[in-house]
Design a protein around this nucleic acid. Structure first.
Lengths: 200, 200
DNA sequence: CTTTATCCAACAACGTGTTGTATACTGGTC
DNA sequence: GACCAGTATACAACACGTTGTTGGATAAAG
């Protein structure tokens, strides 16, 4: 009775229960036994698939981070200046798709390593793709990287907050807000909000 | 011989060595023995001052996070729209002052809890201080919080990157960049950079 | 009947947090 | 100056839990 266990299923089951616990408590308080007990496996089985609790975390992170190709595709229009609406929408779709995971990984009990991996990835892919970038002098190219950093940071920050607040705003509104902000600056957007309300 | 140990000194010495190690390796790989050995104290002594390695980290974070009053002072002109140059400068001074610590705490081996504490702090202080904010309707007030989140995120992101790159840009340039970005939007700033270079 | 995936038990090594006792220096008191 | 109480640390030993590993048993699949 009980059909033969399939390795991939077992691994996934372990990951699922790992994640369920990871959502509730900081990783350093987790134990391998806790995971395997919950998953209904022997403790030793965990070590068949992972070397470590951190290894399990890595596995989950890897499953989220899109492959190089997919990522490249997703990002390439971003700074051609062609269609920034489209670029932003793709970013949002990515975030929506993995929202449950991202919320935790980028949150207070998340993994800073993951954040830095994402950022580095975006930087590395975004910078060389800007075809007009070679025109820039040394210093401006550096500044450009800081611009990119700012954009990623604020996007991630906003979305993480949005998720942690249970999506208290329609996606369209958030989209428009981020778009305006990148186009006109946060200060400007704030001012407009005040004036619009003041004249009503 | 060897004068009497002063508690505050001992605690500080422990913290110093904790930090020195924390900079080199993730906290979950640290041991109490490692710290006390380095500091030249008995392992038991650590537990006189801290309950935990994480407690020690907390202590360091607390020493960085400015007190409510100081923080309030630092932030209050921020959104009166009066002098945003000044507000930004104060932020930068804060970052410069604790740069060595912040770089690590906000970096890949940092503490996400700390990040979220900073953000929450800024939000909590910035929002109620905007005297014109009561004019806003429900939805716009929410949007405003997202604006603040974006601003904090990008500032923190930029400065962390700046530090991790060994301050590869003059402080003034960074200041101007962030200022422009918040005033005109990252997209706009990027465009200007390209055009300025193209016409030379 | 062989392969494969898991179970089970036991292991040494190590880190934890706690406790009781000892030492040494300090400051104050007579 | 000698004595004493208080304090900061040292030291040693403890029970406990977790780790990562191993060797052999079990059961289902082909």
């Amino acid at each position: 009775m009980g059909r033969r266990p399939v390795p991939e299923e077992t691994k996934q089951t372990l990951l699922n229960h790992f994640w369920e616990i990871y959502c509730r408590k900081p990783i350093e308080k987790m134990t391998v036994r806790e995971i395997t007990d919950a998953a209904g496996f022997n403790r030793g089985t965990f070590y068949v698939y992972f070397t470590d609790v951190y290894d399990a975390l890595q596995a989950i992170e890897d499953s989220i981070l899109p492959g190089e190709e997919q990522f490249e595709e997703m990002i390439k229009d971003h700074h051609k200046g062609l269609d920034r609406h489209q670029s932003l929408k793709e970013f949002m779709e990515f975030y929506e798709q993995h929202g449950d995971k991202l919320q935790v990984l980028l949150g207070p009990n998340g993994d800073p390593m993951f954040v830095s991996r994402i950022k580095a990835r975006v930087r590395r892919l975004l910078i060389p793709h800007s075809s007009e970038l070679h025109k820039l002098n040394e210093r401006d190219r550096m500044k450009f990287e800081y611009l990119v950093e700012a954009e990623i940071s604020s996007r991630l920050g906003i979305f993480t907050l949005w998720f942690s607040r249970g999506k208290d705003l329609p996606l369209e509104d958030l989209h428009q807000l981020v778009y305006d902000m990148e186009q006109k600056g946060s200060h400007q957007v704030g001012q407009e909000m005040l004036h619009r309300n003041g004249s009503e």
